[in-house]
């Protein structure tokens, strides 16, 4: 009797403890964003006085160092464009490597993997020079190119997934006269929704998270040209952190909204057993 109840309770208590550890910093982020004291509160976990003013400042009082609405718009544009381009690139490359057989395929695959291992931080400087040559520094277009152009190299996980889609599905489509393009768009892509979700989320997150590349590319001192990551990172530099830490927290929370919405929309597609039962016999 008691054993029957204790084990599930323990199981859920354990999970709850884990969740607690994982959520503490997020909770701190949240309560700090509601604090009246602008700097880092080092003595108390919860603020002594509560206010919504930080959000108000974030949205309606852009100043010379913080222009959140413009940052948000820039990052949104970059994120959406990258999302589309990267997802297409990854799916295309994965299909070519997983489902097609052509001369030099394995060599090309190994080459891409080796290429992907070259430290990105190092080639950053060189990318900056290449972009300068093309006249694309200080522009959102340049950032979109940088974030999405190389995305084809990240095909490994997606290819691993395509490898698990039964080849018989593709063969039967071919027997019924489908072209490779049709097999790609009508058979393989509908079957790989979880993978698309994964790729979309990754591609969308990159520009929201990256501040190094953005800082390097966008040299403009005018805050309205920055991305969210750049701007927020700037707010916690030593000279500003005392006056803007709570604003930084508020901004960090607001940034989470588009990303969470994306997760919620995409979670629908985590359907169980996508390939189960697709082929009979």
């Amino acid at each position: 009797m008691s054993k029957k109840y204790i084990r599930p309770v323990l199981r859920h208590l354990f999970l709850a403890a884990l969740v607690f550890v994982w959520l503490i910093p997020i909770l701190w982020l949240f309560v700090t964003s509601l604090s009246t004291y602008k700097g880092i509160n080092t003595m108390h976990f919860f603020p002594t006085h509560w206010t919504l003013d930080n959000y108000h400042q974030l949205f309606f009082r852009p100043d010379t160092v913080a222009n959140f609405p413009a940052w948000f718009r820039n990052s949104m544009v970059i994120g959406c464009c990258c999302c589309v381009i990267s997802t297409f690139f990854v799916l295309m490359v994965s299909y070519a490597f997983s489902c097609m057989r052509f001369p030099g395929r394995k060599k090309l695959m190994s080459f891409s993997i080796i290429l992907g291992m070259f430290p990105g931080v190092l080639s950053m400087i060189a990318i900056y020079f290449v972009m300068k040559l093309l006249g694309l520094t200080d522009s959102i277009g340049g950032l979109i190119i940088i974030y999405s152009a190389g995305s084809g190299l990240g095909f490994l996980i997606c290819k691993g997934f395509f490898d698990t889609i039964p080849a018989s599905l593709r063969e039967s489509a071919r027997l019924e006269g489908a072209s490779e393009l049709q097999i790609f768009t009508r058979v393989v892509i509908p079957l790989s929704k979880p993978m698309i979700v994964y790729t979309v989320i990754n591609a969308f997150l990159t520009p929201w998270m990256d501040f190094v590349m953005a800082k390097l590319m966008i040299r403009s001192k005018e805050p309205s040209h920055w991305t969210v990551a750049m701007g927020l990172f700037n707010l916690v530099q030593r000279t500003l952190v005392g006056d803007y830490f709570t604003v930084f927290c508020a901004g960090g929370l607001i940034v989470a909204i588009p990303i969470s919405v994306l997760f919620i929309i995409m979670q629908r597609f985590y359907v169980e057993g996508i390939t189960g039962g697709a082929v009979k016999g």
Partner: peptide, 24 residues
Amino acid sequence: FYLTLLSLPGLGVLLVNIFPILFM
């Protein structure tokens, strides 16, 4: 079809990976 699939991503990789790497 693989040529169609790989050409655009390949071009991107050339621009932001291969040239910078050779340079560095």
